[in-house]
Design a protein around this nucleic acid. Structure first.
Lengths: 167, 167
DNA sequence: TTGATTGCAAAGCATTTGCATGCTA
DNA sequence: TAGCATGCAAATGCTTTGCAATCAA
């Protein structure tokens, strides 16, 4: 039994809930992936191992995992909620490539400190925050540069006028 | 005619669209408010002046205003898209009070610089970003403190374990 | 005149809820 | 056994789309 599974079962007991095969499977599959999964994504993966499982159960279990501190909601602006690991996976922010969809996680102590300073100026007490930077990752930038060169276009290829999903 | 209205009409002409009474009214009402309005909010306000106007038209016009550079979408995690002024209203970020819903706009050049530095480290090209800090505004903090004192509770009042809508 | 615009109703999505059945503790 | 959990279908809330009628250019 992994640490995460122990945390989960403790949470279930403390809350007077029940351990079920579905919940165990959903947690297991969730732990196996390192992506930012939507409920739908996870549902598909879980279905491969138990086709009888319902979409609703995945939704409900993801909420449960969040309550247990094992998952954390993240939204990148495409309208669907995604989940990332939260257990022993400290706070960080995201860069989201609007071309290929890749996300880069990063943490900067300086950034956190600066935010605290700004909040203090406004007598604001931060409980949490989200910083999302939208743009182009290194791969897409070099691909774009290559494409521009090869097409020898007079003017560079037009990119999204405004990044979609700046939610 | 305000500058914003000129921008709007220019955008409409350039795009081969048409000027209508509904669009003019929606823009006018939008400009009169300084809030972060949802489509629904704006619809209600507009209806007071022209009850015949449809919800759909407001949705569509808000998109149009965004394309014209007059409005900007913001999302605070309550599931609905809000719009703020974008014309000569430079980039800024938000602090959102999870108790009273108030938002504080702020801008920090240091913060922007630091973000650029971090992005550069990852060879990431930022097109735009959103930083949202959730927590308690000055008013709510002092109200809470007063309440705690008056109720003379042994332990301070429990607040949201995790801020809702960290979308 | 012609194609864009409007408003209604219907459709779309992601997510939630009601409920009868099934299963843990 | 009691009450939580499950899965289906239906409902929800926000937003978009189809379409016939209307209107600006």
């Amino acid at each position: 039994m992994t640490e995460e599974q122990e945390v989960f079962h403790q949470h279930i007991q403390r809350a007077g809930l029940k351990r079920t095969a579905q919940r165990d499977l959903i947690l297991e599959v969730f732990l196996r992936t390192e992506e930012h999964l939507s409920s739908e994504d996870l549902y598909r993966l879980v279905q491969r191992e138990d086709p009888a499982i319902g979409q609703t159960t995945v939704y409900r279990t993801l909420k449960l995992l969040t309550d247990a501190g094992l998952a954390r909601e993240v939204r990148f602006g495409d309208g669907r909620t995604r989940y990332e690991h939260n257990y022993k996976h400290p706070h960080h922010d995201h860069m989201i490539c609007t071309e290929c969809g890749k996300t880069i996680e990063f943490f900067s102590a300086d950034l956190e400190k600066l935010q605290d300073k700004i909040a203090a100026r406004h007598k604001f007490e931060i409980t949490n925050h989200t910083l999302r930077m939208f743009g182009y990752c290194a791969d897409c930038r070099s691909k774009d540069a290559r494409r521009d060169r090869e097409s020898s276009a007079a003017e560079p290829r037009v990119r999204f006028a405004s990044a979609p999903g700046t939610s």
